[in-house]
């Protein structure tokens, strides 16, 4: 097996580097959640209520986070509107 691997060249990504890649993404995400202020879930809820007055969207579709960029705190809201709503509006 070792000889075969060697002759064919190692094309397959090794599991350790998969582990590292996955952990890098996961930890960044979880650390972001941890740093989030305590009012964030409540604020998210209220923003969702306002949006729901105008468009019907899935709760899960709203992504909200607070990041730091260039010394500024940035509140980022990301919401994908459903297709029908978009065409109905335009």
């Amino acid at each position: 097996m070792a000889l075969l691997d060697y002759l064919l060249g190692q094309k397959k990504q090794k599991s350790a580097s998969m582990a590292k890649d996955r952990l890098q993404i996961l930890l960044a995400h979880e650390r972001g959640d941890r740093r989030a202020p305590e009012y964030l879930p409540q604020m998210r809820e209220e923003i969702m209520q306002v949006i729901a007055k105008y468009v019907t969207v899935d709760q899960e579709q709203l992504q909200i986070s607070i990041d730091e960029a260039n010394g500024f705190e940035v509140l980022e809201l990301n919401l994908v509107l459903p297709d029908e709503q978009k065409s109905a509006k335009s």
Binding site: K14, S15, A16, S17, A19, K20, Q24, L27
Partner: peptide, 14 residues
């Protein structure tokens, strides 16, 4: 060495 376990540097880095 065979790429089947996270290296110490990777864990420290993470």
């Amino acid at each position: 060495d065979s790429g089947d376990m996270l290296a110490v540097d990777d864990v420290v880095d993470l």
